[in-house]
Simulated assay, not measured.
Amino acid sequence: MNRPVRRSRERAATDRDIRQTARALLVEHGPEAVTLRAIARELGITAPALYRYYGSRDDLIEHLRLDVISDLGEALTAEITGQENAGAPRLFAICKGFRRWALTHTKEFTLVFASPGGSTGNSVAKLKQLTEPFGRLFLLAAGEVLLSDEVALPSDDVVPPELRDDLADYRDALLAVLAEAGTAVPAERLTIGTTYLMMQFWARLYGHVTLEVFGNYPIPVSKPDALFDALLADLAREIGLVLG
């Protein structure tokens, strides 16, 4: 390729082109394949041209991660839009939708939920990103459940003393995010014990889905849907609910 043509293509390469190419590499080959050099090769430009948009690979990966999280949030929102029953039915519908998405978007799941934090340190698996689409959707549904008198709230006594300060800080952040979204959960309902329960709920859901996505069940499972439904039923019972 001669220099004038290359320069023309570099000018024509847009942020949208870069992200679409990065997403295609992710879906086809996995997170490790998403490099500035590979993207430049696919677009027919030089790698330095990409630095007009992204300062590093980590910068690009973080934007790609946010794109994936946004898509997941939109997909799950579409699933529950128009659903008559809020509260627990909506929360568990989100759980089922998350599993379906993970099983059909394994490379995206790997990038967002199963990759080391690295320099970005923004794994949604930790539920740190409370204001991102997926985290917000999950937590708002959980907030609706907490407002239900049917839920059995645990005592703070169940929380190991070593975890209470961390959980208290996280509880305060949760209350602020829920209130900003229009779900005012009384502080007496979102106790440290309840926050601990929410953390355990997420850990079990995330752990189960991760085992299934990567085929790491300890035994062969011929009916994984039944196993996941049993997990949700167990989680429901632990908070005093019965799934219909």
Rank of each mutant, 00 (worst) to 15 (best):
W202Q: 01
R189K: 08
L64P: 13
A142H: 03
V185F: 10
P48M: 13
L103V: 03
I69P: 05
D165Q: 12
T191G: 04
L227T: 03
P220F: 08
A40Q: 01
L174R: 03
E28K: 06
Y217N: 06
F92P: 01
L178P: 03
R189F: 15
R11N: 14
W101P: 07
Y206S: 12
A49S: 13
F214R: 09
A75L: 06
V158Q: 09
L72A: 07
A47W: 15
K126D: 14
G55K: 13
R52Q: 11
C95K: 02
S70L: 07
L139Y: 09
L64Y: 15
V112I: 15
T191D: 07
A86L: 01
L146E: 13
P31S: 08
F98R: 03
V34Q: 14
E238T: 15
G73W: 12
A141E: 13
P186G: 06
V209M: 05
D149S: 11
K107F: 09
A13N: 00
E84Q: 01
G117A: 14
R57G: 01
L66Q: 10
G182Y: 06
A114F: 14
A102N: 05
A93P: 12
I94H: 03
E79K: 15
V177H: 01
E79W: 03
A49L: 08
I239E: 02
F98P: 02
A230C: 10
V68A: 08
P154Y: 00
S222K: 11
A230P: 07
R90D: 11
D58C: 02
R204F: 01
A179Q: 08
Q20E: 15
Y53G: 11
R204K: 10
F98H: 04
V221F: 00
F109H: 09
R100M: 04
R52H: 15
L66F: 07
I45M: 13
R99P: 08
L153N: 04
A230V: 08
I61R: 00
G97C: 11
D165V: 14
Y170T: 07
N2T: 05
P224E: 09
H105Q: 04
P220W: 03
T46C: 04
G244A: 13
A226F: 07
E42R: 14
A13H: 01
G55D: 12
H29V: 00
Q83Y: 01
Q200V: 09
T210D: 07
G143N: 06
H105M: 01
T81I: 10
L174H: 00
V124Q: 10
P224M: 11
A173P: 00
S70W: 08
T194M: 08
L139V: 12
N85K: 05
R164N: 10
R237W: 10
G118A: 04
T35F: 06
A179K: 15
E238Q: 15
E32C: 07
D234A: 07
A40N: 02
